[in-house]
Design a protein around this nucleic acid. Structure first.
Lengths: 188, 188
DNA sequence: ATCTGGGTAGACAAATTTGTCTACTTTAGG
DNA sequence: CCTAAAGTAGACAAATTTGTCTACCCAGAT
């Protein structure tokens, strides 16, 4: 078992559930069963560990979503599958990724509010990467570049909206609501 | 000048910009120019101060939005005015409320992730209150209870999505994008 | 006039934070 | 086999956290 990986997983679990500034290094150490020296051998400072958790989550979440969207025909169906995936996530039926506590990248961006901060910028990059995953599928079913752009923007708005509503307000129907809107936009 | 109010304002400014756990009591004291004893005279603990900042922001933000939506005819126009207001906010043209650093309630919910925590619950209540403000206007232009419910859900999704995209990704066009979608839904 | 409540400045306690360092052990490869 | 890297436990430093407390000031109501 790789100690670095152990650290990153434990740190992610704690940071995701309780927030980054609320969780001290010692909690991560205790949870992962790794020595402090080892942590500082792998990471120069807490910030580097935080970035590693973002990298970890980015990989995990993207793989999960890519997989879900690839299991149906590309285009319209894949875009609807996105919201089915979110629905499973909100209802605790997504075993590949952790139990739902909101979007890690939104949560981290809230704690590192300055857009110029590397950690915030890294979260923005994740969002851009998911956006480009959706873009591929939008291009499958849009009739013009203009419509594609409009569709992509709308999908991203609804996706973020669903995640936030599910977390802040605890309304787990949010994914289904968003799916319904998307279905209406994709009838053409 | 009311010391309690001074404290709440300074605390809100700092918490909103830098996050709650990242800002210590002493920072709030220094910024507000109030003595520590006075803080603990008005608030039993930091949590109570946090709740007071939420109360403060809830009042401020709701008043601002209500005012913006009341300056045009109720119904369709008011709902579009919501997104114009967001657009102004994102572009730093909303002087009544602070410069844009995301939604305070989403940010706080990220730091207090447990939905059962009173602070998280208070944020959810704010969202519910804004939702019911929108509901009044939706009822003005919906043709059925079913359509009204669908419209309201969609508006809320787009609103949260726009705020998150503007903050995390720094895409300040998000409000205009959302407005366009809403305009499409409200043509009837 | 005096007493009460809100205020100030800041020392202090106790816990916790990040990060360093020592001294020792384990493990894997040349 | 032996060296070098990675690991352990945990003491320690220095700063920072929340919250309490002392000692004093001042203004307004009784």
């Amino acid at each position: 078992m790789d100690k670095r990986e152990q650290l990153v997983r434990a740190a992610f679990d704690l940071f995701y559930r309780e927030g980054i500034h609320a969780v001290g290094i010692n909690r991560v150490l205790a949870e992962s069963g790794v020595a402090k020296k080892t942590l500082y051998h792998h990471f120069p400072a807490k910030d580097a560990l935080i970035e590693a958790t973002i990298e970890y989550r980015d990989r995990r979440f993207s793989d999960w979503l890519r997989h879900r969207m690839a299991s149906v025909p590309a285009g319209r169906e894949a875009l609807l599958a996105l919201f089915d995936a979110l629905d499973d996530w909100f209802h605790g039926r997504a075993t590949d990724i952790q139990a739902f506590h909101g979007c890690y990248f939104i949560n981290v961006s809230a704690e590192f509010g300055d857009p110029a901060h590397p950690i915030h910028a890294r979260c923005a990059r994740h969002k851009a990467s998911i956006r480009s995953l959706l873009a591929e599928h939008v291009n499958h079913c849009a009739e013009s570049a203009e419509q594609a752009s409009y569709l992509l923007d709308t999908l991203c708005l609804l996706k973020e909206g669903a995640i936030v509503r599910a977390h802040v307000e605890g309304d787990r129907r949010a994914a289904q609501q968003a799916r319904q809107v998307v279905a209406g936009l994709l009838v053409d």
